[in-house]
Nucleic acid binder design. Structure first.
Length: 813
RNA sequence: GCGGAUGUGGUGAAAUUGGUAUACACGCCAGACUUAGGAUCUGGUGCUUUACGGCGUGGAGGUUCGAGUCCUCUCAUCCGCACCA
């Protein structure tokens, strides 16, 4: 019978389902592995990236199950989000209906791939039962002061009609629709992730060697911790008067306190309160005022493109040490969102300050020795710095901070680039933020017993405005505190909130899902995720938020886990003709069609064989054929097997070819542990199995074939589960899949050993010697074989590398 | 600019502690079988040279008996951040 993937795969998928083969053991007593591939957004259809992601995860899950671990390998749906609303606008389908029908379709697609997911722990993040617990967390965070509402300048995407978090802005554009992001002042809810900045940064250490370096540095840069000095510039008396006595001073932050004596001006952001006051009270010339307003309407990107731009504000401040009067400017390169929106400027030792000072003719004062040209930003000794003159600048940084602290002029402090996480979205298809606005009580959290605050189904989605805002009744409610009429918050939560805690929801036993969000014992047993697999595009967004949520939920008492994902594997993209597969480019491969034509095993084998998982995978139709050929060949060789158990083989009776075949089989076995547990180079394990099969094909010993198939089917089961299980049932009653396989050293013992003979560092000959040969004997035969190249030479050094080579270093006579 | 990675045949890629570079697969070439083949099987396939040999892991040096692997410098490509004071 020839290989028929569709029949075999349907058979085993049904059988696995009937056997409930992939449910974790609820006893929580055995050693465990939690294997998680990032859950999909239910867009409607699987793409090849999904296939790769889940093929990798499934290989881990199946491998560890075989090693007798209690394995949790769940799947669910990241189900809230914009595309559901877009579908509603475009095709008139309700987001809920669109989402759940997509889930049903994609679940079927996943089933045809034979993935070993737990079926009992599946959920969609739009299920009200999921929303319920998420809203509870949000309320707890509010009570703990980790969540607050504030009106500030936010990133606004007009196309998506919503606010975006800083992490969701890519080069000034929306991460989802690529529309240019605008700035807008509006109220929103924020999570105080900065409070956890140090924790998030410090714990990256724990992940070294377990997460890709690239991701660790990206997170570390994103958090952007810098230490320095914070101090106040006091306004001159004249300036105070000009500002109507409303301002005495303002705060600046510097990482270079050693250059403090080189300050020749100070600069404020266009949005700084003092700048604003000047504008509001017509204290600057009308044309200048207009230009400052123009700057504040520009995004940071636009300002950067514009070049340095600024205006003298006609104010002065007093240098805290020298008491000199220093001019105050406004400058477009000073960011309102960082370090208080004001800087001290040291043009001699800072490139930006230098550029600005040069453009506007501001004074430049050198205070660090070194280099010929200004600005000089490297290390050196201080000059023109009163009693610090002569001190090395590293040392001076500490000393100057100490002096500021001693004189109560300022203090050493830490700043982060990380901004607090804005979590409100002005959209319908998300988890409602469970708060109520009451005229007498202000902002009030909903009572926990009223959760979930579910979305109303009867909405009209037009793309204009927030459907919750426009719903006639939904937002009317009573205040949980005073009972008076109140209105519900109509913003919904960023979808990244859902994906920040789903790893804990899977871990919670489903029979507790009604009564608790996260079960502590379950979470402590299953977490951290032993192997997390997903795309590098989540390096900051999801992976940072999930780490943050883990720490917050830990501190709220839900579990005792510090880091959610112990080991992270970032898979490469699937490419076609060097470009990312995408519908708009028309270079996609449809997984359904692939499975239909070749079967799931071929699809899985190809994706794991064509490249190591972290690398990009270039699609290649004929290589898919190659993967199919291998499986077919493996299947056809079932006729070679002569016994139902692992045979005991008398090595000495075998031919050279049979011995070699055994070596290849056991080399593959040896490789498998390394691949599944350390290197993840599935491509090399598959190659080793191909070599083994090729070697088996060159001999005809039935027992060697039996042993070879017994072992190889076991090794390949995590990768191509259907065909291997089918063959295993046919040949070994599935016993070999459960068997603990052990290496047999005698297989590797060779009758003779080939030594490569190198003379003068070049490969010259090869000799075959007995394994028991002494070093002298080996050298003697090497010299004999290489006699031709030794003529007229003196051997200066003889090196014998056991089982490998002889190297004779020579020089002319 | 800062940070991270990657450079090996025609292509995807292999190569424990430094120890026969190019395993495995695709492609290509030749042959067999076949009415036919985009099926299957067998053999070949780094470059160069008539040959002996020489040269080959982005480039240049270095360490070593021996370097894809270690060190120094350099070039190229990709990714991330990007006026963070």
């Amino acid at each position: 019978m020839s290989y028929n993937p569709n029949e075999i795969e349907a058979k085993w998928q049904k059988k696995w389902e009937d056997e409930k083969a992939f449910e974790p053991d609820d006893a929580l007593s055995r050693k465990k592995k939690y294997i998680l591939s990032m859950f999909p957004f239910p867009s409607g259809r699987l793409h090849m990236g999904h296939v790769r992601n889940y093929a990798i995860g499934d290989a881990f899950a199946r491998y560890y199950r075989k090693q007798d671990f209690n394995v949790l390998h769940p799947i669910g749906w990241d189900a809230f989000g914009m595309p559901a609303e877009n579908a509603a606008i475009k095709h008139g389908r309700h987001p809920k209906e669109w989402t759940y029908s997509n889930i049903d379709y994609m679940r079927k697609e996943l089933n045809t791939l034979g993935l070993s997911f737990s079926k009992t722990r599946e959920f969609a993040t739009c299920d009200p039962l999921y929303t319920k617990w998420e809203q509870e967390f949000i309320i707890k965070m509010f009570e703990e002061g980790l969540l607050y509402r504030e009106s500030t300048t936010v990133n606004w995407c007009e196309a998506c009609h919503t606010v975006l978090a800083n992490e969701q802005v890519e080069e000034g554009c929306c991460w989802r629709c690529d529309n240019e992001v605008e700035l807008k002042e509006m109220p929103g809810y924020y999570l105080d992730i900065i409070k956890y900045a140090d924790d998030l940064l410090g714990d990256l250490k724990q992940l070294e060697g377990k997460w890709p370096n690239q991701v660790l540095t990206m997170q570390s840069n994103w958090i952007g911790k810098s230490q320095g000095l914070e101090f106040n510039f006091e306004l001159s008396e004249e300036s105070k008067a000009k500002l109507g006595g409303n301002f005495e001073k303002y705060t600046v932050f510097t990482t270079r306190p050693d250059t403090i004596y080189g300050v020749t001006y100070s600069a404020l952001a266009a949005e700084h309160p003092i700048t604003k006051y000047l504008l509001d009270n017509d204290l600057v010339d009308a044309d200048v005022a207009e230009k400052i307003v123009t700057i504040s309407n520009m995004t940071e990107i636009e300002r950067a493109k514009e070049g340095k731009e600024g205006y003298d504000l006609g104010l002065t401040v007093i240098h805290p040490l020298t008491r000199e009067e220093i001019p105050v400017w406004t400058a477009n390169f000073v960011l309102a969102s960082y370090g208080g929106g004001a800087v001290m400027a040291v043009p001699a030792h800072d490139e930006r300050d230098f550029e600005f000072a040069t453009k506007y003719g501001l004074p430049i004062k050198r205070v660090i020795a070194g280099g010929d040209d200004l600005p000089y930003t490297a290390e050196g000794a201080l000059e023109n710095s009163e009693l610090f003159t002569g001190m090395l600048n590293k040392e001076a940084q500490k000393e100057i901070i100490a002096m500021f602290e001693a004189k109560a002029l300022g203090k050493g402090t830490t700043n982060y680039k990380l901004r607090n996480w804005g979590i409100s979205r002005q959209r319908y298809w998300g988890a409602p933020i469970p708060f109520v606005h009451c005229d007498s009580c202000g902002l009030v959290a909903e009572k926990v017993e009223n959760l979930p605050i579910a979305l109303p189904d009867d909405v009209e989605i037009t793309g204009e405005g927030n459907p919750l805002e426009n719903h006639p009744t939904w937002k009317n409610c009573t205040c949980p505190k005073c009972g008076k009429d109140a209105t519900r918050e109509t913003d919904t939560l960023d979808t990244f909130v859902q994906s920040s805690w789903y790893q804990f929801r899977y871990a919670t036993n489903p029979n507790k899902w009604n009564t608790t969000g996260i079960d502590k014992d379950d979470a402590n047993y299953w977490l951290g995720v032993d192997q997390y697999i997903g795309g590098i595009e989540h390096a900051i967004l999801h992976l940072l938020y999930a780490r943050f949520f883990t720490k917050v939920l830990r501190d709220l008492g839900y579990h005792d886990i510090d880091e959610p994902f112990e080991n992270l594997l970032t898979q490469g993209m699937v490419l076609m003709d060097g470009a990312k597969m995408s519908k708009s480019k028309g270079n996609t491969v449809d997984p359904d069609a692939l499975v239909e034509k070749y079967g799931a095993d071929t699809a899985r084998l190809f994706t794991l064989f064509a490249a190591p998982p972290a690398k990009e995978l270039e699609w290649n139709d004929s290589a898919v054929e190659g993967a199919f050929r291998f499986i077919k060949k493996l299947y056809d060789r079932n006729t070679k097997v002569i016994g139902k158990t692992l045979p005991t083989i008398d090595q000495s009776s075998l031919s050279k070819e049979s011995k070699l075949a055994r070596v290849k089989v056991y080399e593959a076995l040896q490789k498998s542990t390394d691949v599944y547990e350390k290197t993840f180079a599935f491509n090399t394990l598959i190659a080793a199995c191909m070599e083994a099969l090729n070697a088996l094909d060159k001999q005809d010993d039935g027992e060697v074939w039996t042993e070879g198939m017994y072992i190889m089917l076991n090794l390949l089961e995590p990768i191509i589960p259907h065909v291997t299980t089918e063959l295993s049932e046919m040949l070994f009653e599935r016993e070999n899949l459960k068997a603990k396989l052990e290496l047999k050293e005698e297989v590797f013992v060779q009758d003779s050993i080939n030594y490569m003979v190198m003379i003068g560092g070049k490969k010259r000959a090869e000799v075959e010697v007995s394994p028991s040969a002494s070093q002298e004997e080996i050298l003697a035969s090497a010299k004999e074989a290489g006699a031709k190249w030794l003529e007229g030479m003196i051997i200066v050094k003889e090196i014998v590398v056991p089982n490998k080579l002889v190297n004779l270093a020579v020089k002319p006579h």
